[in-house]
Amino acid sequence: MLAFLIRRLGQSALVVALMATIVFFGVNVVGDPVDMLVAPDADQAERARVIADFGLDKPVIEQFGYFVKGALQGDLGKSFIFGEPATKLILERLPATMELAIVALLIALIFGIPLGVYAGIKPNSMGSRAIMAMSIFGFSLPTFWVGIMLIMLFAVQLGWLPATGRGDTASFLGIQSSIFTLDGLSHLALPAFNLALLKMSLVIRLSRAGTREVMQQDYIKFAKAKGLSFGHIVRVHLMKNIMIPVVTVLGLEFGSLIAFSVVTESIFAWPGMGKLLIDAILQLDRPIIVAYLMIIVVLFVTINLIVDILYSALDPRVALSEKNS
């Protein structure tokens, strides 16, 4: 177990190092931030001063060396536009993004699992076919188009829900969130549903496939032969087994909810990390772009590492196969 953990930690560190290199050099070959930082009528001396202040006059390799040195100390650079540490700006927006991602994940689970189980229990019914058709639409429809349609219907035409912003927030156990106020929940509803739609479709298909497989198992037939009620069989025997792949996949998909909430946050003007990233890209604020991408890389690597460790703890064959390979 210890050797497996050390090996995984080494692999994770290597992935982070490689991605740091790719991200830094990839971002630094795109555009010239000086055009954004210096007024068009500024003279050459002012332009040279700004370039020197931000260290853009140094060779890219030397800039990368400073970046690595700062990253090892937790410093991913200072924003060109805001003049504050990029990590600080992103972490200030992180709670709003996490809140949106968590609520979207809960929506996907609350609606996706019952619909998927029903579609699996009655695969030939009209309801099942309608659910599977809906899941196909969830995979196929572009997120930005769905978001715009939700705004047009529920905010503009019906006037039921607000279209943009985070709304009022409140603190509970030291956590500041919009889910603790009615106004915040009303602002959260549309962006959370928009972000959850794709994951809900995934949960439906996973739950349906798992249900159809489990319902054919001998222990389900034995439970029926014992005279157990169908509801008891579903709750105790079916749900316990289909939740293993669902939870595993969604554990990994949670990282993508955070990383790919950029479109949803932009459409609904949600003040999260994604909105900050879009603003940084438009202004060529390189430190924020690099810091955001690195935080996402670390997040994905950490989630994958946790899943691997849990698997190795629950199933020793995982670590054994690694050793034999």
Rank of each mutant, 00 (worst) to 15 (best):
40 P>T: 08
139 F>L: 15
55 G>F: 02
107 I>Q: 12
73 Q>P: 05
114 P>K: 00
116 G>Q: 09
57 D>A: 09
127 G>V: 11
131 I>S: 13
48 A>W: 10
50 V>R: 06
68 V>H: 05
35 D>V: 10
81 I>D: 05
91 L>C: 07
47 R>M: 02
51 I>S: 14
118 Y>T: 01
97 T>F: 00
74 G>W: 02
38 V>Q: 09
29 V>S: 06
140 S>A: 15
44 Q>I: 09
32 D>V: 03
102 I>D: 11
106 L>H: 04
46 E>I: 06
117 V>I: 14
71 A>P: 01
120 G>E: 11
127 G>L: 11
125 S>H: 01
130 A>C: 03
94 L>F: 08
24 F>T: 12
116 G>D: 12
125 S>Q: 02
60 V>A: 14
135 S>M: 10
41 D>S: 14
142 P>T: 03
140 S>E: 12
89 L>I: 02
84 E>A: 15
45 A>C: 01
35 D>K: 02
30 V>I: 15
130 A>T: 10
64 F>D: 03
125 S>Y: 03
28 N>D: 14
47 R>G: 04
51 I>C: 13
99 E>N: 11
139 F>W: 08
81 I>Y: 01
44 Q>A: 15
24 F>S: 11
118 Y>A: 12
65 G>W: 08
42 A>G: 05
46 E>M: 05
110 I>M: 13
54 F>P: 00
63 Q>V: 09
85 P>L: 05
121 I>Q: 11
71 A>G: 04
118 Y>K: 12
50 V>K: 07
32 D>T: 10
132 M>R: 15
46 E>Q: 09
102 I>M: 13
90 I>C: 12
70 G>W: 08
78 K>E: 13
98 M>Q: 04
119 A>N: 03
122 K>H: 14
68 V>K: 08
127 G>M: 12
90 I>V: 05
34 V>M: 06
26 G>T: 03
111 F>Q: 00
101 A>Y: 01
45 A>Y: 01
76 L>C: 06
73 Q>M: 14
70 G>I: 04
130 A>G: 10
39 A>W: 01
24 F>G: 10
104 A>E: 10
39 A>L: 03
142 P>W: 07
93 R>Y: 01
89 L>P: 09
79 S>T: 08
89 L>Q: 10
32 D>I: 02
78 K>Y: 05
56 L>E: 03
89 L>M: 12
65 G>R: 04
74 G>C: 06
64 F>K: 00
123 P>V: 01
63 Q>T: 12
59 P>T: 10
31 G>P: 10
124 N>L: 10
60 V>H: 02
88 K>R: 07
75 D>Q: 07
83 G>C: 07
63 Q>R: 15
140 S>R: 11
78 K>N: 13
100 L>C: 13
109 L>S: 05
130 A>R: 06
120 G>C: 15
39 A>M: 07
117 V>E: 05
107 I>W: 08
74 G>H: 09
48 A>P: 10
53 D>W: 00
96 A>E: 00
92 E>F: 00
137 F>P: 08
138 G>S: 14
27 V>L: 12
77 G>A: 11
64 F>C: 06
90 I>S: 13
62 E>A: 13
56 L>P: 08
135 S>I: 09
87 T>K: 13
39 A>I: 00
109 L>G: 09
44 Q>L: 11
78 K>L: 03
81 I>S: 09
75 D>N: 06
106 L>M: 15
